[in-house]
Design a protein around this nucleic acid. Sequence first.
RNA 1: GGCGAGUUAGCUCAGUGGGAGAGCUGUUGCCUUACACGCAACUGGUCGGGGGUUCAAAUCCCUCACUCGUCACCA
Length: 886
Amino acid sequence: MKNIELEKVYSPKSFEERIYNELKDKGYYNPDNQRDTNGKTFTIVMPPPNVTGILHMGHALNNSLQDIIIRYKRALGFKALWLPGTDHAGIATQHVVEVELEKEGKHRKDMTRDEFLKKTWSVKDRHHDIIKKQLEKIASSCDWSRERFTMDEGLSKAVRECFVTLYERGLIYKGEYLVNYCPHCGTALSDDEVEYSNVDSFIWDIRYPLEDGSGYVTVSTTRPETMFGDVAVAVNPKDERYKNLVGKKLILPLVGRKIEIVQDSFVDLEFGTGAVKITPAHDPNDYACAERHNLEKINILNPDGTLNSNVPKEYQNLDVESARKKVVEELKEKGFLISEKPLSHEVGHCYRCGTTIEPYLSKQWFVKMDGMAQKALDALKKGDIKFYPEKWESTYIHWMKNIRPWCISRQLWWGHRIPAWTCSDCGEVIVTREDPTKCPYCGSTHLKQDEDVLDTWFSSWLWPFSTLGWPQNTKDLETFFPTNALITAYDIIFFWVSRMIMASLEFRGEVPFKDIYITSLVRDKKGRKMSKSLGNGIDPIEVVNEYGSDAMKFTLGFMASQGQDIQIDMNSFKLGSKFCNKVWNASRYLLMNLDGKELQDVSKIEKNTWSKWLYSRLNRTIKVMRDSFDSYKINDAASAIYSFFWNDFCSVYIERSKLFLESSDKKVVNETISILLDVLHKTLILMNPIVPLVTEEIYASLPNKKCNYLIEEHYPEADENAIDKSAEESVELLEKIITSIRSLKATLGINEGEKTSAIISVTLNDSARAFVESEKEYILKTSYLDCLTFKDARAEKGYVFTGEMGYECSIKVPSTIDVTERVRKLEKQKSKLEESLDATKRKLSNPSFVERASSEAQEKERGKEKEFEEELSKTEAALKILREWK
RNA sequence: GGCGAGUUAGCUCAGUGGGAGAGCUGUUGCCUUACACGCAACUGGUCGGGGGUUCAAAUCCCUCACUCGUCACCA
């Protein structure tokens, strides 16, 4: 073989983009082209990022984990599809466009709907290119040929089919309800889109006079401006204070309207005055109360959040804040206000723009969810779906059991327009798969389509099958559905995961995926969620520019333990970077040592203890990695390969192999390089899912590669027969001896490189001793000794020794050397041993232990006792010698 | 307030009934011809507090404290 030169420095910039694109262009990410298949499919649909969003660390984590899993499954021979796409994100995208318009001094309302949509599509296209480039930059091996967008033609058809079917099944209806309304965005929001946060405000006590002039009732409120919509005051039926007032009427201050006093048990006796003003159109509780008591609902707000014509003239068109001030002023002036106390309470805000949410009475479209939720609960009970980690099951169950109707209409322009028409002549509502041209009831052509669009989640809840072609019965749908795994963060279990399961059960009669891997959230080093407003986000693209996508993927995989949020900063990514660098350099070293050597068939080589040990460790690692990936414990897989590659392969085997490679025996040299290359080849495949690009780049230079690209290689199988405990023990013993000598020299203040002589006595069994004695040259080299003898170590004068179970090492030192540090260390060791021995002895002499502990435990304990005693006596002997040193 | 999770080395986290672990950081010494993103040796821990179960608890149970998440409420 000839030497192969890798670049001297590991620089991901020089190959990552090239390799990613090359494999993409050659179609390796498309399952249709996959050669190594076991006939089964493995599908992941990518949670579609908002098309106008910027890729943040959460996406990077999510997509890295999906990439790792899909690459692993691909290597196992599954026909692996990772389907990418983006979400039209109704409110968010419309918001982005409106901000752009604002900069141009324009407003949405100044243009026609079509003009606005045209503009939005162009903004969408621009942003789509950005987010796609970002996903490519982090080397996502998804099949771009199948990329979808929630508003493309196929998916829009799916949405239409879904809406009409649910309508026909009686699950979609229009109703007047109190919805969460964002005055800024001008649209209703679902309950889940409202974010609560604490706001410092006041609570006001207001006096409502009795109609008969016999006094007044005091109510407490945080929203005095809504009093214009008051229709009653409620008290608890058990409340003795108000017993005799029931049935009487009150005069609403500032308005003069008469309102009733009603009894309702929802009123808390302890809170405030125990009397609550009822404003059905602007408070969910009051709404429910009004329903129970058949009270009128007076809406006092315009859609833009200002007060409407149901309030006194001087208040009309004021916004809520100003109206509140004015009401308080007037109440104070007229003597109705009793007190004003500061109060901090939770107020709902729009999750997009942060505006205070108004409960608002309006006509909206809803989906009945309880039936679907029950089926989704059953699916979990039957084991059709499984959460990783399991704890998220309870979250899922809780939400499903407390499900409410889903408000699906949004007063936006960007989105799927609701396929419902009203006939202007007969008033009938028409919901059909094709746009109607005339009214099927009266034949009129005066039809008007509903102005609203659907909630964005109404398209994404169909994602696992709409992306594969549903409602058409496509080949993809048949092949890849149901999908296998969903990998997403826990903050959208409600929004998305649960609804996808319901939709799939409703329309496909089966679950959309089996495994649900809920990833951690990424936080900053202070534990805060990364967000734009805090400015604490780390841009994944910057990470890739600085360290490379492999380094990022490895780091995230290494840190992503199940169920634990991960806290990172820019420095965290050094972990992955260092690992890649190590892999690069080890490979570079092996490839620069090929000259004149011949590649042997590894299966025919008779293995020595070292290579038995290496293959034993390798096969253990393969097993751990497979088990870990199979159960989505990616961090376990990452640490297993990290430890094997760095410690076992590089630090031990490669170091030892340097001597083998210097051998004059050509057979030894050829066999050694063959084993080195074989293990390198296997480890590159093993780690490929976590560091796909650097392994691919190195693979291209391997003289023993089997395919054109690493991505075509089959994942290694663990060979149980290669596990060799005896070889493992021998090598571990030898490594311990070397460490002991180095450590002894260090504590005596002898420089590592300073030569000295040593004596080793090994008291272990014959084969271990024979192995250690046969490794004399290696010990001399790695411990910097000039002379090594195997005999009883304690007999010699002028030697300091260290002893552990099974062996003792002594090294010769000049009498002038300072042994204080060594004495201190031994004393520490001695007291620790005494403690351990004591504990063990106590255990063994405890009658209960002897009586009840398993025989294995007792056996082990006796072994420990013997071990501790031996070590202790050696330590004491060593101390005695050192104390008599001078 | 309900539910859930967490509390292990300076930092980030593994470890689920039998001798406290990793990576990073830190200290000391090394540019030993693959790697200074390296090598070697080492420092560092009443496993949040208290109680219980057990022969044996970081690990199981109870309780308290703090942190986080989530749902609900807040007139």
